[in-house]
Every structure is written in C-alpha cells, then in structure tokens.
Write a protein that binds this DNA or RNA. Structure first.
Lengths: 190, 190
DNA sequence: GCCGCTCATGACAGTGGCTGCCCTCGCGTA
DNA sequence: TACGCGAGGGCAGCCACTGTCATGAGCGGC
C-alpha cells in the first residue's frame, strides 16, 4: 500500500468518461473530474496534456497494433491488403469493447473539440500506417495514399457500425467499404 | 466615413497572419492581434469563434466552390470524376494565391491546434462533397467513400505541392494522386 | 538503522482564451 | 426629431493550463 491509491491515471480516465456522459464535456470542469478521482487538478495535467486527451489514452496502443499488423502481413500481400490487415486488427479491438467504445463515441460526437482531437488521432494513425508500409518497401506516394484510403474506410465503416442497425460486425463493414471504395475509385458509375 | 475604420474582420485576419508568422501562433496573444488591427479583444471574438478560426475564414467559400463543381459536373460523370472536378476547382483557388497559401500553411504546420482545426475543415469539406454527390443520386456509402477518397487525394497532393520541389502544378499532382490511388486500391503490388 | 535520492502528488499563483452583460454612439428611418 | 439598430468598447469573471516549490512514502546503499 503506497502513499496514494494506485492507478491515478485510470481513475482519472474513468471519472472523466463518467462525467462527460453525465453532464457533457463542456459542462465538466477538470476540477470535477479530479474531485471524483480523489486527486488535484494539477495531477490531471501531469497525466494528460489537456482536458481532451483523457479520452484518447488508447490511441498509442492502437497505432502500435496497426503498425504491427502491417509488418506481419505476408510478404506477397499488396499494400492495400497489408493496410486492410491493420484495419481488421483495429476492428477486433473495437468489437471486444463494444459498449465502452459506443459510450466514448457518443461523447466525442457531441463535441466539436473532441471531434477535432479524434481526427488528429486518425491522421496520426494514417501516418503510422504509411510508415509501416514504407518499411515494407512501398514507395512513399503509394504508402501515403494507401494509408489515407484505409483510414477513409475505417471512418466510414466505423460510422456505419456505431450508428447503423447493428446487424453486421465491424470487420464485415470494413470489407464492404473496401469493396465499395474499390468500385468508386475504379470509376464505376453511380 | 463611419464611426469606425471599415473591414474590421479583414484587418484582424491580416494582423493575425502577420503576427503568427512573426512570433508563432502560441506566442501571439489575441490582445496583440487586436492591438495591431486597432480593435479590442472583445471584438475579435465577435468575428471569430476562437483564436484558430481567424486563419480559416475562407473554408466556407471553398466548400461552396467544391459542392458547386460537383453539381456542375456532366450528368454522365462517375462519382469519382465529379469529385475530381471539385478538387480541380479547389486546386485552382490555391494556385491563384500560391504565396499566401504557403505562408498560411507554414503557420498551420507549426502548431498542433491549428493542424486539428485544418483537419476538421477538411472533414467538413468531405461532408459537403458527400452531400453534393448524394444530390446527384449517388448512394450514401459510395458518396461518403468517394468524398473521403477525394480528400485523401487532396491532402497528399497538397502536401507534395507545398513541400515538394515545386515543378508540377497542384492540378497535375491531383491527377497523379488519383491515378496512384486507383492503382493502390485496385490491389497493385508494391 | 539512518541517509539521501526518487518520484508521484499537493499547493498556489499567474497567464491567457473566451463569455456575459451592459454601455456608447453614428446612422438610417419613420 | 425621435427612435431603434448594429458595430464596437469596457469590464468582470470562469476555466484551461503552466511554472515553481513543497511534501513525504518507498528504497537502495552503507
């Protein structure tokens, strides 16, 4: 037993999500979060760069997971196939924690600042994917475009998964979006 | 001659860009901008929702331009062709004001908050493109994916145009990126 | 068994982004 | 002439975030 309760960071994350759900992000001062977590405001900002970041603690691990999936794809896989392997890995993580993901997303969708933060996390993920593709010897332009296309698929598939009727799994939706993107880019008429 | 100098909004935009270039975004308090523009802080926030927004005044017009280009594309054009027409229109605007665009982009690239704001403007543009495509009768999923793909192309082509050797026009780069994206999504090996 | 180091947290003051509220005053209009 | 409108000013205040110093449990070294 230490001088303080353990897992301060985790307590802050949980208290923040709870309060953002209960009152909304904007109506929740950081002081409220730290009060619920039994800590001080100063400590919050030692663990998280800002009030938004507390919702995005897992983004680093997600990047690593996706980059690992690209690296682990068969040598014969095309760049797009390797990127889709990363999306499948990410989809698995989301589906495991479906309820938490939906709760978190409802908070993000309700606030513009949080949507901004989500977009920069996706952009960072796109960069990580592009790096991993380059490590496979994919040329720079192809790597960047493939990564951006993969993120586009993830955005759209994730949106369908969250807001749609919920009959299909996220992995299935990713597959459908990849096909639909292929058809659209190949110039199929509407 | 009114009670005040005319074009307060424009003066604020110009003063802000100048100061962001001279000292950097973070080192420029809003009070400095308003001092240079001969106004008060309160007035700044009447014209712009926040300190970032002053750099993004043109985004609304860009959306309208792109949506108009999609609407104006030939009826026989595929969704992707209509979206590329929008990118060409946008590229034309950027190329007209090349120096200003580069200056502005150097400020944005230097600051994470501004990059976030840029991303949400691009996401908003993607939404406007998707709406315009739906108005052409394009199915929802195809519209969203086509719009996201177009934004991906714009991001990559714009990056090449800004940071590259500068021999090719932005329109040429857009064309090359569209082709490269087509090849990547079609599953060409690296 | 004490010494001193580390390191997570507390305490507190300060900066600056942003807002609400009320005031000012030139202008167009009845 | 009177009146309202609208752009801007003034001011108090909230809150996100930071710099700085203090505190005190755990812990290895001796």
């Amino acid at each position: 037993m230490g001088r303080w309760e353990p897992n301060a960071r985790g307590r802050l994350e949980q208290a923040a999500l709870e309060l953002y759900v209960e009152r909304g992000y904007e109506q929740t001062p950081v002081a409220e979060i730290t009060k619920r977590a039994g800590l001080t405001e100063r400590t919050f900002f030692r663990h998280f760069a800002d009030k938004r970041e507390v919702l995005f603690g897992g983004s680093g691990r997600l990047e690593e997971l996706c980059a690992g999936a690209v690296a682990a794809a068969p040598a014969a896989a095309t760049p797009m196939e390797a990127a889709v392997a990363a999306l499948d890995a990410a989809a698995g993580v989301f589906e495991e924690r479906g309820d938490l993901v939906r709760l978190r997303q409802s908070v993000i969708d309700a606030n513009a600042e949080l949507r901004e933060r989500e977009l920069i996390k996706l952009a960072s993920l796109s960069g990580a994917l592009a790096d991993a593709l380059r490590d496979r010897g994919v040329p720079d332009l192809t790597a960047r475009l493939t990564a951006e296309a993969a993120i586009a698929v993830l955005k759209v598939a994730f949106g369908c998964w969250i807001h749609g009727p919920g009959k299909r799994t996220l992995r299935q939706l990713v597959g459908e979006c990849v096909d639909a993107l292929g058809a659209a880019v190949a110039g199929e008429p509407a």
